[in-house]
Simulated assay, not measured.
Amino acid sequence: MNNHHFLIDYNLKELTEHSTTTWSIALYHTKICDHRSGHIPLHWHDEFQFVFILEGEAEFHINEETICLKEVDGVFINSGCLHMAKDANGTTCTYLCLNVSPHFITANELFTTFVHPYMHASQTPYILLNRKDHWPNHIYQCIQTIQRLIDETPAYYELELNIQLITMWKCLLQNGFQIKYDARQHDKNERMKPMLNWIHQHYHE
């Protein structure tokens, strides 16, 4: 599924409804230069995002940090974090992108303990994922399985899809996802959103 253009509100929140089926999940193959602006503009959303580079190189800006991703690289972007992406080093980048609602990761009884605290871990806006390492590659394989399940919709695929998501999430929690909350950093990030939107709206001035 390609996403050539998406709407952003006055606060830079993406307005796209990330839903591939009846579930709060969407999977995209994104070619950055196909976007109307030639890059993925600065935005944020409530969904968790998993990105894996398939071809070329990309420069991602996440909150106040810049990272360069090459083939076999990937990144997890936390809920609510400002981010944008553009082609890097003269390449044309294509990446696989999975967006999933935090509330779809686990059952309600587990959400409070195993998901909610990590959504607000202001010190962890992203986690690098390199497919040369075992556990990030396992996450990538789970996303490939999710793609097949969405395309083929075999019997009981909904249950298998949920298994894959929980497996991915468990991998993150077991490999360095720290629950660290800094109220000052959170407030700073929230103030940045309208400020950056004002700059975007008045850039020509």
Score class of each variant (00 low, 15 high):
Gln49Tyr: 09
Gln49Met: 15
Val51Met: 10
Val51Leu: 13
Val51Glu: 12
Phe52Thr: 11
Phe52Leu: 12
Phe52His: 10
Phe52Trp: 12
Phe52Glu: 13
Ile53Asn: 04
Ile53Pro: 12
Ile53Lys: 06
Leu54Ser: 08
Glu55Ser: 08
Glu55Cys: 07
Gly56Ser: 09
Gly56Leu: 12
Glu57Thr: 10
Glu57Asp: 14
Glu57Lys: 15
Glu57Cys: 13
Ala58Ser: 15
Ala58Asn: 07
Ala58Ile: 05
Ala58Cys: 14
Phe60Ala: 14
Phe60Cys: 12
Phe60Arg: 06
Phe60Glu: 12
His61Pro: 01
His61Thr: 12
Ile62Arg: 08
Ile62Gln: 12
Asn63Phe: 10
Glu64Ser: 13
Glu64Val: 15
Glu64Tyr: 14
Glu64Trp: 13
Glu65Thr: 06
Glu65Arg: 08
Glu65Tyr: 12
Thr66Ser: 12
Thr66His: 12
Ile67Asp: 10
Ile67Leu: 14
Ile67Ser: 09
Ile67Asn: 07
Cys68Asn: 11
Cys68Arg: 15
Leu69Asp: 06
Lys70Arg: 08
Lys70Met: 01
Lys70Asp: 03
Lys70Cys: 09
Glu71Asp: 13
Glu71Ile: 13
Glu71Cys: 10
Val72Phe: 11
Val72Glu: 15
Val72Cys: 11
Asp73Val: 03
Asp73Asn: 05
Asp73Trp: 08
Asp73Phe: 01
Gly74Tyr: 04
Gly74Arg: 01
Gly74Ala: 07
Gly74Leu: 06
Val75Gly: 04
Phe76Leu: 10
Phe76Trp: 12
Phe76Ile: 08
Ile77Asp: 09
Ile77His: 07
Ile77Gly: 05
Ile77Tyr: 07
Ile77Ala: 11
Ile77Glu: 10
Ile77Arg: 07
Asn78Cys: 06
Asn78Met: 02
Ser79Asn: 00
Ser79Tyr: 00
Ser79Met: 01
Ser79Gln: 00
Gly80Phe: 01
Gly80Arg: 02
Gly80Tyr: 00
Gly80Ser: 04
Cys81Ser: 06
Cys81Ile: 02
Cys81Tyr: 00
Cys81Thr: 02
Leu82Pro: 03
Leu82Lys: 03
His83Gln: 03
His83Trp: 03
His83Cys: 00
Met84Val: 00
Ala85Cys: 04
Lys86Met: 10
Lys86Arg: 15
Lys86Tyr: 04
Asp87His: 07
Asp87Pro: 01
Asp87Met: 01
Ala88Gln: 05
Ala88Phe: 08
Ala88Thr: 05
Asn89Met: 11
Asn89Ile: 09
Asn89Phe: 09
Asn89Val: 11
Asn89Trp: 08
Gly90Trp: 03
Gly90Ile: 05
Gly90Lys: 02
Gly90Tyr: 00
Gly90Cys: 01
Gly90Thr: 01
Gly90His: 04
Thr91His: 02
Thr92Ile: 14
Thr92Glu: 13
Thr92Pro: 10
Thr92Phe: 11
Thr92Met: 13
Cys93Val: 06
Cys93Thr: 05
Cys93Arg: 07
Cys93Ile: 02
Thr94Cys: 14
Thr94Gln: 14
Leu96Ala: 04
Leu96Phe: 03
Leu96Trp: 02
Leu96Glu: 09
Leu96Pro: 06
Cys97Arg: 07
Cys97Lys: 05
Cys97Tyr: 05
Cys97Thr: 05
